[in-house]
Each structure stands twice: as structure tokens, then as C-alpha cells.
Simulated assay, not measured.
Amino acid sequence: MTACGLPRSGPTRGQIYSGSVEKGGSTHVVNVDDRVNRAANYSPAYGFGSDFQSAGQVGADEVRPGDVLGLSIWENVDDGLLTSMGASSTQLQQLQVDSQGYIFVPYAGKIMAAGNSPDELRRLITEKLSTQTPDPQVMVTRVAGDGATVSVLGKVHAQGVYPIERPTRKLSSMLSRAGGVSIEPEIAVITVKRGGNSGKVWLRDLYSNSRNDIALRPGDIILVEEDQRSFTALGALGGQTKVPLGNEQVNAIEAVAMVGGLQTSLADPKGVFVMREEPQSVARAVLGRNDIYGTQRMAYVLDLTKPDGMFLARDFVIRDSDTVYVTEAPMVQWTKTLNVILAPVNQIRTTEQGF
């Protein structure tokens, strides 16, 4: 009874096993072996899907909805359609391309501007006006290009809205345009949001693999963040804390070492647990069952006293949000109980010796 009330760092190994599904609990307690390692050791990888990687580069000179254009029109007559008496040309400024991609030009009517280059648009307008005035000469310029921009946010030196121009058509060059990242490159994660889809990549992988240097599209949002993946260490370890994972793969042995290792006076090397929630597909593979549905609570057991225990722990990959928990050795509770029982006796002896 005394032992039940003694302080400790968490549940014992036996208490965790008593909460298993086989004993009416809600957690699958699984002893790790080579098969389990193969089934459980997957890490959700960062990267861009095929929809991002297959998108072609945006032409820097392509007109888009939201662009503002300027037209200069010369007519080869003294009194033209658009020019006033004595003037050889007319200027039409601030023609904004509407949301459908059209502009309106007097005497030429409604013209589809979006998707054309300024030179292609010049040719279209010239053809329209040629039926009403002899040999018109047209020049098209882009006054502003609000329709072809991306937003760069987060841990960069210069957040802002930037136009997609010839030198900044790809992700890496746009990051450079924003001054580069303002955090350590080793922990920088780049997320690109495009409509309802998003993808992310390590900054390191962006520069090491050209497939990750995707072409940008108008309206993209680029977010630079410090990686937030971590695991929690609890129990009879050298430290109890939340530990960042960084961009390297961490195994169970490394995870224990990162918080100071097992406490030799407290830890049970048979009771190293890694607790996580597994998706249905992984849970089925680990348990060898097809009647598992939905996310499952799993408690993986690593026994470091077995001959191959250290090797199995070395191959077991820690994932984001894992809890690494080490139970106290059974003898620890016995020692605590004896100390509680013997404390009054020792106090009496000390008192008697004082007389």
C-alpha cells in the first residue's frame, strides 16, 4: 500500500502492458523486431507533388488579368479615328485587363489580352483598326503587372509581394529576390501554397535537387518557417523535455542519447517505449491484420537487454510528435518502499542513541 503512493516518473512497464488492447485497453503494445521495424519505419517526406513539378514556367512577357497596359496609336491620316486635328498619335493609358482577360480599345472593340504577349496584342489591335483607318501603327507597353505576382512571407529578410519576372520564374530565384532566409539554412522549411494545394521542402533539398526548384505561378504564397517537428522525452532519462528533430533522421538510440541517456540508477532497459498514433495503413502492416480501421494508438517496446536490442533500437526511426518514455526498474520501487518503511525505525534508533 505504501508503494502505491510513492512518487515516480510515470507508469510502470506492467501498467502499460495492462492497458493493451488484448487486456481491454485502447493501445496496441508491440514488441519491436525486424519485421515491425520494416513496417513502422516510414517518414512522411517533404516534397512537391506532380502538379507542382509539372507546371511550366510563366512567360515574363505574358499579359494577365489585373495587368495595366498603355497603348500608343499612330494613324497615317491627318484626321484619324483616334487622333485629333494636327496630332499624329494618341495615347491610351491605364487600360486594366479585367478579370476575364479583356481590354476595350475604341473602334477595335473588346479584345482578349490575357495569355498574349505585348507584341501579340499589338498585332491583334492593329488588325482590328486596319479595317477602319489606313496603316495604323500600335505600340503596347505594360504599365503595371499586378496579375503576375507571388507573396513571400515568414523567415526571409524582405517579406513582400514580388512580380514574376524573367530572372524570378523559379522558387530559388524568388527567395533570393526576397533577400534569402533569415534563419539557419539547416532548419529552414519552404512551403508553397497554390490554390487549395500546398507542398513543402527543406531549403537544403531545394538546392540539392533541381526537381524541387519548381516554377512559380501567379498568386503563389511562399512561406519560410523554422521546422517544428519534435519528439517528447519522459521517464527515467537524463532529461525530460521536448526535443527538435531537425532535418536529419533520428533513431531511438540517438533520441535517448539526445536527452542524456538512461539514468543508470532508475531506468529499466527492458522498458523503453515509443508511443505514437499510426495511420491505418501502417497499423495494419505492423499488426499483420486487415480488420484495423482508422488511426491507432501504438506503444512500441524496445528491450535493450536482448542481444539484438541495441540494433533494433538503432533501426527504429523516431517521427514527429513521438513520445519516448523509459520506465523505472522494478527494484527502484522496492528500494523506495523499503526506505519509507525503514525511515521511522532509523529515526527511533537515532533518537535512542541520543539518550
Rank of each mutant, 00 (worst) to 15 (best):
F273W: 12
Q296W: 02
Y325P: 10
K128W: 03
E352G: 08
D34G: 04
I222A: 03
S20G: 14
V317N: 07
D227V: 09
S321K: 06
N76I: 03
A114P: 06
V340F: 09
S89D: 14
Y107R: 03
W74V: 11
S198T: 01
S182A: 15
L216P: 03
P307V: 08
R217M: 07
V161K: 09
E277V: 05
D33A: 09
Q96C: 09
Q159I: 10
I348M: 11
P65F: 13
A257C: 13
L171K: 04
R289I: 07
P167R: 07
S198V: 00
G309K: 05
T168D: 03
A178D: 08
T295D: 01
L223R: 01
G195R: 01
A215D: 06
N37H: 07
G49N: 06
Y46D: 05
P134Q: 14
R297P: 01
P244W: 04
W334S: 15
K270N: 15
G195F: 02
P7T: 04
I16K: 01
G196C: 00
G354D: 03
N116I: 00
G70K: 12
G261R: 05
F104L: 11
G10F: 10
Y17G: 07
S54H: 05
I187T: 14
A255S: 11
S20I: 09
E328D: 15
R8V: 10
G309P: 09
A114G: 06
R8L: 06
D98V: 08
S210W: 06
A55H: 04
N339S: 12
S173E: 13
L81V: 12
Q159M: 13
R142K: 11
V326D: 10
K336W: 08
V30L: 10
P269N: 14
M174T: 05
T305W: 05
V326E: 10
S176R: 12
D67P: 10
A87Y: 13
N339R: 14
S54F: 05
T351D: 07
G294E: 08
D291C: 12
G180A: 10
